[in-house]
Write a protein that binds this DNA or RNA. Structure first.
Length: 196
DNA sequence: GTCGCGATTTGCT
DNA sequence: GCAAATCGCGACA
């Protein structure tokens, strides 16, 4: 292993149309810095294999006709993390998109472990499972900057991006409003995708 | 103050 | 296939 440096995605990557960001994030990487560990533990790397887009004018979005409570997070600067609690027991991880003052976010639904030891059997398929596997919580990770490589969690350029598999675009999972919006993206034939 | 629901997962029938 | 677990937030009283 050479000393190839992990380059974080710049804030401008997220300062764009939410649906575009959701699609382009596939194949890039989510990096978990183990800053709680003792010395010299390598960061854990995960490939993003499944995402969904949520925008300001989207009836299924938390910020649809709302600016208070948890929805206020969605109007923040692009590149920040939005973590919320769903059904009282599971966390979901998003990254804020669009300029500050405009709501938008991309939900991470599934990731593929790239550096995890096989016997740990991390379950990272599904938005609730992946946050549990990485110990992501609202208290610790909501609002952190995902475009800075010194954050406990951040996003980075994927090395397999250029020759990645085809991308499938379908409707989103688990929502009752705007079911017909084709704003879910995943990498074809990837075994870590939550629902085929 | 009380009620109902939600971008989910799991276990039981 | 269906319901339980469990909590933040909006709607209503």
């Amino acid at each position: 292993m050479t000393s190839s440096k992990i380059i974080s995605l710049p804030q401008d990557f997220f300062n764009r149309d939410t649906v575009t960001v959701a699609q382009e994030l596939l194949g890039h990487e989510l990096i978990l810095n183990s800053d709680n560990s003792p010395q010299g533990i390598k960061p854990q790397r995960f490939k993003i294999v499944e995402t969904e887009a949520y925008t300001q004018n989207d009836p299924a979005c938390h910020a649809y006709k709302k600016t208070t409570g948890r929805a206020a997070n969605l109007y923040q600067a692009p590149g920040l993390a939005y973590v919320y609690l769903i059904y009282g027991m599971y966390h979901c991880l998003n990254v804020i998109t669009e300029p500050e003052g405009t709501a938008g976010a991309v939900l991470f639904r599934a990731i593929e472990p790239l550096t995890t030891n096989p016997e740990s059997s991390l379950k990272t398929h599904g938005p609730g499972r992946l946050t549990r596997a990485l110990n992501i919580t609202k208290d610790q990770h909501n609002g952190i900057n995902l475009s800075q490589s010194h954050s406990p969690l951040f996003l980075a350029y994927g090395k397999q991006k250029l020759n990645s598999s085809p991308i499938i675009q379908t409707t989103r999972i688990g929502i009752s409003k705007a079911k017909d919006y084709p704003w879910r993206f995943y990498i074809k034939d990837n075994p870590y995708v939550s629902v085929l």
